[in-house]
Every structure is written in C-alpha cells, then in structure tokens.
Design a protein around this nucleic acid. Structure first.
Lengths: 343, 343
DNA sequence: ATTAGCACTCGAAGAAACGGAGTGCTAAAA
DNA sequence: TTTTAGCACTCCGTTTCTTCGAGTGCTAAT
C-alpha cells in the first residue's frame, strides 16, 4: 500500500522531531508546530501509520515513535540532504590540513574529525594494503638474527615488521636483498608478491631463496592480521544520549565497538559500496541492534581500499551524517591522492 | 597519635572488607567474621578511628568507609603482599610469549594483560626514545619531494615519519645520506643527535647540510610529540564497579582517561620511580579525584625509559595490583632485553 | 472528510509508610 | 578499668499509594 502525501508529511515530521527529542511524539504537539491539520486528523493518520508498521507506541497513552521501517523509508526517500554550513565544512577541512605525516595519521585524524563533528562514534579502517602496489622494501638490521622490514606502497602506507634473519646475513647483504626485491617487485600488488616469487626466483636472490621466501610470507601474513586495524573515536559520545543512560546498555555498546576485529569485518564488507546505511536490526553485528551504522568508502588511485563510518542510535540524524561522510570522503580522497602525485 | 594493635587490626579488616564489597562496613558484620571482640567494642574503636580521620560515615546509621588517610596507611604499612597464584602468573607470562613483533606490540600486549588481569584500567607509556641510542636511520623514497624516515634505537623502537626532501635528491643519494648518518651517529643518544650535528657536520654531508639539519630537527620534534603515546586498555572495566553506575561519573572518567597527553604526563612523571601509589585527591590529574593510580617503571639497558600503571577506584585491591605490576615489570624487562642481546 | 469534545489509560513523579541495619549511650558484667 | 549486652533512636532504601497530565480512541457535530 502506498502512503499518500499527507501520511508522508506526517511521518517525516515525526521522524524529524523524534531524532531531535528522543521522546515519543504526540498528535497535539505536531499540529501546533506548523502542521496544517488538527490533532484529531493527525491522530487518525498516526493510527493508520501504526497499523502499517511505520510507527510504534511505547504504551497506550504515549506518543508514537518511528519504527525501523520508518527510518528505512526516511533514509531511502524522504529525507532532504542537509548541507553543511560553510563554517562546518571549513572546520572539517581543517582536520585534513594538519597531521599530514602519512596515511595512518590522516586516518586517525579522520576518525577524530568524524566523531567530533557528528557527536556520534566514528570508525575508520586502515587501507587494505593488499590491493596496493609495492614501492619499496627496506630491511633494517636490528641485531644479529633480527631485522625490521619496512614496506611502502603506492598509497604511502608503511608497515613495520620485526623478522628473523639467518645470523650469517650481514647488514650489507640485507641492504642488497632489499634493493633486489624492490627492483624486482616494484609496482606489483602486495597480494601477488609472494606467489610470483616462488616461480620466478632465480638470479641473484636464489642463494637466499629460503630466507626471502619466508620473509615475504611473513609480510603477507602480517598484512592480513596486523593490518586489520580500525581507528575508533568518540565511543563515549554515545553516553550523551538518553538511549545509553543505563550503564549496562553503555557497557554493551562500548564492548562491541572495541572489538576491532568485528569493526574491521563490518567496514571491510562496506568498502565496496559508495555509501551504506544500516538500521537497527539490519545490523549483523551483535550489539548494534539498537544502533544505525552509516559508512562510506574511500579510494586510492581509483581502487576502493577502505571505508569509514559513523555509529549512532537508530534515531541518528541521517541527513546530516550522510552529508558529513560525503564531505569527508572527498577530502580524504584529495589528501590520499597527494601522497602519490607521481603515477 | 599512634594507633594501637587493635585499632590497626580493625582498620585493616574494614579496608579489606570495603575493597571487596564497596558498601559501608558495620560493627556487627565485623565482629561476626572472625574478630575476637564484640560489636560494641568495635563500635567504640570505630568511633575513635573516625575522629582520628581514618574512617567516615556516609550518614548516621550507616557503617563506616575508609578515608584516603586510611588507604594511605593501608598501602604504606598494613597490607600484606598478595602473591599471585601459579595460574595467574602463567597467564600473565602468556601475554608476553605472544606478540613479539617489536616493542610497540609488546607494550600494547602489556596494557591488555594488565587490564584483563586486574579488571581495572591500564595505561602503558611508550618508551621515551630520547634516552636511547640510535642504531640505524633509513630514508625511504616515497615520491619526488617526500621520503619516509625510519629510526631504530637500541631498544628496538622504530618511528616512522614522513619528511620533505628537496626534489633534486634522488633515491641513491637518500640511501647514501642514510648510511652516512647511521655511521656518524650510531650509538649516540637520540636527544643529542641534532645539536651535535650542527657543530661537527663537515665531510660528505656538508653539501646537503640544510636538508640534513632540518631532517634531524623534524625527527626530534616528532620524537617529543608523536611519541607521546600511551596505550590504553580496559577503560570500560570501570563500568563494572558501583562507583561508576552513574553515567555521568563514567563519562567523566572515560573522558579523562582518553586524554593521552595527560596520561603521558602522568606516566612520564612516574617513570623515575620504581613504584608509585597515588590515592584519590593526591592525584594532580583532574578527574581522578575518586581514583587511585598505581604505576611501575620499566627499564631498558638499566635506564628507565617508561612506565605503566593501573587506574581503579580508590578502594582498589592495592596488594594484588602491586604484585601484578611487579610481575609485569619483570616480564617486560626480560622481553625488552631480548630485543638487544648484543651490547 | 475534518474537527471539537470527552471519557479513559497509563506511566512518571511525588508522598507516605515500612523495615532494617547500624549507631550512641547506659548500665551491668568481667 | 575494660568489655559487653541491651535499648532507643536515626535515617536510608524500598515499597505502596496517589496524583497529575499528556496522549489516545471514539463519537457526534461541522
């Protein structure tokens, strides 16, 4: 069944109001604030909307609150994009002017910016290094038997790993091996480096084939485990909202959000999509049944390498959050691009 | 005025009990649980202890709770060192067996271990790189005009910084400069590297004096700002305790603990001391007036380079926490030492 | 089709009543 | 002189009861 114009208008007003106030919306209040129908009419419409599943009543004599179905409709069709004030977008831009010490710092800054501006919780996943191209590998001697491997990709991401080295390889040889690998695999995707190697080894590296192979293996392994990092910011913002005035609710939320693995999985899944909005029980993540998650992906060199998002109560200000995410997405793209002017 | 034996015994019992239960301790309960005096006697002694400032009454007709003065006395003189069960110390040791990918990972693991075992909040400061000796500097070309500087010290700590490079310096020259600096300043304290340089420059680096100087300056700056890192773990553990069942209290605590700068300052100050116990209002840190902080320092090569600690309610289990810290201190020392077998 | 009017519902907030743990004091016992 | 039993009293936390009001559904008038 289709909703007529009036129902839509009323529903929107209710959602808007509830997002603001967090308390059930009554017919009287609505009719007084710029609605052109009497409270009785609105009351009738509200009853209809309830039977249609868009509204719910906490108890008989309370106002109505939007259901998830209502939010879904709101997000898909009804909300009008908020646009950020100049002030806000300048503020946002400011976060990206500072901290240009590398990709990690930028993404950390992004998380902070998001959480501070939205007042919700922000998560940002570090770029998936596997899809990027190797630029440089450098092995730095630490002590006999140990070295530090530094990997740089075209996205500027670097990753340090302590690796074991046969004791008889000296600093000079480490340096030579670094150069050889860099030369050989420059511009290859990280994910293909190891398998490629096994086949085409030969040449100067063959004497150290075992070592090199285990080295690359370690790096790849590390990429998939250690890189599963998400930057979290503003988790405690949620304590501001009445939804979390109960300590136990708050605890559950905080515990969920601190499971970096889950957050990573969630963001990873969302990184193919330009934007996603997941409302309440649509969330697979246990513990987010009362939250909504809005994400956006970011790309480097045209390839989507990661995503970031905002987590808030289901009554979050979707329009505003989406505008902010869009803005951040653009800014982030620009900044990351600046790490690789060449190419 | 001195406290006689009986007063001490009663006070200890009260503190022990209150640490466990978090609710005011009454005379009757005490006399029944193994005290050899009647409730009336205990009641009299409690009244004395109150006038002496060791106990407080939330209201007439409630039991007594220990004052900060009481905790101080308890920590300084009365508590008996708990010793960890074999299970626990094995568990603790386990945290150090895993994650041996470098100092950062170890300290992150330390924070996690501390918070999980104590059920309080743990903070660990990253080692102060300035007091360590440079082992290796490597500049890795990122793109024309940018490079990544990787610094390795004798503690195995590495730090990555993106730096600007004059466009006319190619990869080969960067490599040469890296080697030259490494050769020249190997085994110098990081904090002395920059000043030393200005005077003794000359030689092969002189052609690039400007660049090298700004490079080292940047590194030092970065060391003092970016390195001010603390690893935080288990902040939400505090929500388990009745002291924080009020969301606002919780919020204040979480906000405080997330100010990494303050946490760093706190730990830095404590890093000269083997152990510290700071109770309630003894804390300078605003927001910790209802908490206690227990810290321990850790050393590398005999030099104290950092510290770590546990933050909990003032009624924390000091004995247990101190034992755990001591244990961790030992473990951490061993592990860090293993990063520098040589020397 | 819309709206005014009205009786009804039900939670939130406040008031009153209760129970009990704990105290301080006094007088007896050790 | 010190310890302890006994007792009246205090005050908090809890429960129960009341009140209040925002909001509803229904009906009848517009």
């Amino acid at each position: 069944m289709e909703l007529d114009q009036r129902k839509l208008q009323i529903l929107r007003a209710i959602v808007d109001e509830y997002i603001l106030s967090a308390s059930p919306v009554g017919s009287k209040a609505l009719s007084q604030s710029g609605m052109k129908w009497s409270s009785a009419t609105i009351r009738n419409e509200m009853a209809d909307l309830e039977t249609l599943g868009y509204l719910a009543q906490p108890h008989t004599s309370a106002g109505r609150i939007p259901s998830e179905k209502a939010y879904r409709l709101y997000v898909d069709q009804m909300m009008q994009r908020a646009h950020l004030s100049d002030e806000e977008s300048k503020l946002l831009y400011g976060y990206f002017r500072e901290h240009v010490h590398g990709v990690d710092a930028v993404l950390r800054s992004t998380a902070k910016a998001l959480s501070e501006i939205t007042h919700y919780t922000a998560v940002v996943m570090m770029p998936d290094i596997g899809v990027n191209r190797l630029k440089h590998l450098q092995l730095i001697p630490l002590m006999p038997g140990k070295a530090l491997a530094v990997v740089v990709t075209d996205a500027g991401v670097s990753q340090n790993t302590v690796i074991d080295v046969p004791e008889d390889i000296g600093p000079e040889e480490l340096d030579r091996i670094s150069k050889a690998i860099t030369a050989r695999f420059s511009d290859c995707r990280m994910s293909t480096v190891s398998s490629k190697l096994v086949r085409e080894l030969g040449g100067e590296l063959s004497a150290r084939a075992d070592f090199v192979e285990s080295l690359l293996l370690t790096l790849c392994e590390n990429q998939s485990s250690d890189r599963r990092m998400v930057e979290l910011s503003g988790a405690t913002n949620m304590l501001e909202y009445p939804e979390y005035s109960d300590v136990n609710k708050a605890k559950t939320f905080l515990a969920t959000v601190e499971q970096k693995d889950s957050m990573y999985r969630m963001l990873k899944k969302a990184s193919n999509m330009e934007f996603t909005v997941t409302i309440g029980s649509e969330n697979e993540q246990e513990g987010f049944q009362d939250c909504s998650v809005v994400t956006a992906s970011y790309r480097v060199n045209g390839t989507p390498v990661g995503s970031f998002g905002v987590i808030g109560p289901t009554r979050m200000d979707y329009a505003r959050v989406l505008s902010i995410l869009k803005n951040v997405q653009t800014n982030l793209g620009t900044v990351l691009q600046s790490f690789l002017k060449e190419e």
